[in-house]
Computed example of a mutant assay.
Amino acid sequence: MEHKSCRNTGHEKSPWQDDGSSLTVFYEFVSKNVSMPSDLGELIAYVLLLVITWYTLLFALRFLVSLVKPVLVVLVALFLFRFLRSFEFEDLIDLGFTILGLVANLVASIVAKFLEFVLRIFS
């Protein structure tokens, strides 16, 4: 029985040997042993990456809002109570009517601009 040595004598070239470039050997190994994704596979991978990233960001933002929201509610309540204590009842009524007037003017100007836009389209 003939015994083969483990050493390569140079007569035959194994598929793992190359001219010394490890990147080429790695590329050949990957191209022969790992299936390459198709365009549809890449699209699915990118969509999954987008969805995972989106839900991670949403979860992080919801977590931050859940931490900050109670503090904001307490601060708004403190400012509101201090605001209500510093004014007389008549001053609050005047302030309410002033705010309502400003909101009505804003709505009227928005409606006027929209109607001007519609008239320009039809003329």
Rank of each mutant, 00 (worst) to 15 (best):
L115G: 06
A45R: 01
D18I: 10
S123G: 15
I121S: 03
S109P: 04
F97H: 08
H11K: 15
Y27I: 12
E90K: 11
V51Y: 07
P15M: 12
Y46N: 07
K32H: 06
L84S: 01
F26D: 10
S109Y: 13
S31G: 02
K13H: 11
F79A: 10
T9N: 11
L102F: 10
H11P: 04
K13L: 11
S86Y: 05
F117C: 13
A45D: 01
L75N: 07
R120M: 14
R62H: 03
G41L: 00
K113A: 14
F117W: 15
A60S: 06
T56E: 10
A112D: 12
F63W: 06
I44K: 01
V34G: 01
G41S: 02
V73M: 05
R82S: 03
F97M: 06
T24C: 09
F81C: 09
E90A: 14
Q17M: 12
N33M: 05
I99N: 05
H3L: 14
R7E: 14
L64R: 07
R7Y: 12
S66Q: 05
S31H: 10
V65I: 05
S14A: 15
E42C: 00
L95T: 08
L100P: 03
S38W: 00
S22M: 11
K13F: 08
E88Y: 02
S22C: 10
L48G: 04
L84H: 01
R82C: 04
F87K: 11
P70E: 00
L115A: 15
V68C: 02
Q17S: 12
Y55L: 03
S22A: 10
N105K: 15
M36Q: 01
I121P: 00
L115S: 13
K4P: 02
D94F: 07
S109L: 15
E116Y: 12
L43D: 02
L40M: 02
V34A: 01
I93E: 07
A104I: 14
S21V: 09
I110L: 14
L50V: 04
M1Y: 06
A60K: 07
A104W: 10
I121E: 02
E116S: 13
R62P: 00
H3R: 08
D91E: 13
G20F: 10
